[in-house]
Structures are given as C-alpha cells and as structure tokens.
C-alpha cells in the first residue's frame, strides 16, 4: 500500500513519517512535493508537522494554495484516507477539510511533552479496530494546538462520532490538568463526517518506537493497513 507524505517547503516531520512507515508492514511510503499535482498512485496521504510556509501568518493558512492541495481535496472527497499531524491538522482546518481551528496554546508558549490521549471514536480507517476508550501515550510539540469549534459544531462532532482523540491522564480521565494546551472539551483530534480525514495535534510518528518513549502511535498506521486490506475504505 502506497502512503504519500506531502512535503511543504517548511515541513519538518515528513522524514519522521517516512522512517516510521518503513517499519510498518504493508506500507510503502513516498514523498510528494507540494508543487506537484501528481499523487503518484498513493492509497493514503499524510500531511506532516512543521511550518508549511513559515507560518508567520496563521499556521497552515498559505498551504491551501500549494498546488498539491487541490489534489489532496479531490483525493479526500473520493474517500481516500488523509491524516494531518500537527501542522498537517492546521493545514486541513485552514483548507476547510476539517471543522474547527487551532488557536495559540492556553499558556501561550510552545509546548513539547509526552501526553496521553483517549480514543473517543474509532470511526476512521486510521483507527479501525482500535477499541474506543483506549489510552495512547503520545508526543506533542506545538505552539498553536488549542482546538476550538463553536458549540453547535461540537455537538455535531460528538453526535456523529467525529471526535477521535481527547487529552487525558494515563488512566483515561480528562481534566484541566491533562488538557495541556487548553483545547475546548480536551479535543486532540477530529475527523470529517465520513471519517476518512483525520487531523490530530499529537505525533503518532514520534510515538512508534519504545526506545524513543512510546510505540502506541503505531496503531494508527497498522489500522490503516488493516482497513485498506479489508477494502473498508470506499474509494
């Protein structure tokens, strides 16, 4: 299965994604340059972390004008699995492919740490077969990861099972303390209505090796391989 990882000029998590995917059986990762309009036959796409175009304006806001993004939107509309990690999540919200926005962290500063997230809904090819309520230990590193959506949107997200992850403590309880960046309702990741597009602030690719602190994030890539093999992704 081919997984395309998009490189914007200021992406810096692209190589980490490639290196991690190499270790997942059934994944064949490849880089896609942001000026390209050829997805090279990718079966799934990842928009990695970084600062896509420097992001001196709102993070991810310029990336929607990169030529590749039209193809990403088309791919996603046809049901192809897309994962936006950190800056990739910001890009997806700016491009209107995911609901909500990412604001500056509650305590203003960039924050790099290990956190826990709870799988709140597994209605996505990236989480298929992962039991809801599962707690994953994951790396976070961002200055603007404070998720916001209005009340009506949040109600819809919950109803339709679009809240994929919530920040929590190691036991799976959400609280002000575990919600390190102040996201509304502790939301750490959301999907689109169909579930094929997932955006998340934590870094599964940095949390896929026990020697580096956690291997919990690998479950996303393994789920993807499983759901693709099962033909569960409607493209």
């Amino acid at each position: 299965m081919k997984v395309g990882v998009v490189t914007f000029p200021g992406s810096n998590g692209d190589t980490d994604c490639i290196e991690t995917l190499k270790l997942v059986e059934g994944c064949e990762p490849q880089l896609i340059w942001h000026k390209s309009t050829d997805l090279m036959g990718a079966d799934a796409l990842i928009l990695p972390g970084g600062f896509a175009h420097g992001d001196y304006l709102r993070p991810g806001s310029i990336a929607q004008f990169s030529p590749v993004m039209r193809e990403v939107a088309r791919f996603a509309a046809s049901g192809g699995p897309v994962l936006g990690i950190c800056n990739g999540f910001q890009v997806l919200t700016e491009a209107g492919l995911l609901p909500g926005a990412l604001l500056r962290n509650q305590y203003i500063l960039f924050h790099c740490a290990w956190t826990h997230v709870r799988v709140s809904s597994n209605r996505s090819p990236w989480l298929e077969g992962v039991e809801e309520g599962t707690v994953l230990r994951m790396a976070v590193a961002h200055g603007q990861g404070n998720y916001f959506a209005d009340t009506e949107t949040r109600r819809r997200l919950v109803e339709q099972g679009q809240v994929a992850f919530e920040y929590c403590d190691p036991e799976g309880n959400t609280s002000g303390e575990s919600n390190h960046n102040g996201s509304v309702d502790s939301i750490a990741g959301v999907t689109n209505e169909a579930g094929n597009i997932l955006g998340m602030m934590p870094h599964p690719e940095r949390s896929s090796d026990p020697l580096l602190g956690s291997a919990d994030g690998r479950v996303l890539f393994e789920s993807l391989v499983r759901s693709m093999a099962a033909g569960a992704v409607g493209r």
Partner: peptide, 11 residues
Amino acid sequence: WEQYDHTIGTS
C-alpha cells in the same frame, strides 16, 4: 526545555 521541540527527528 518544554519550549524546545526535543522529540522531532525520531532519534
């Protein structure tokens, strides 16, 4: 050091 990204690079 929590203001420094120290996990990027997966190394």
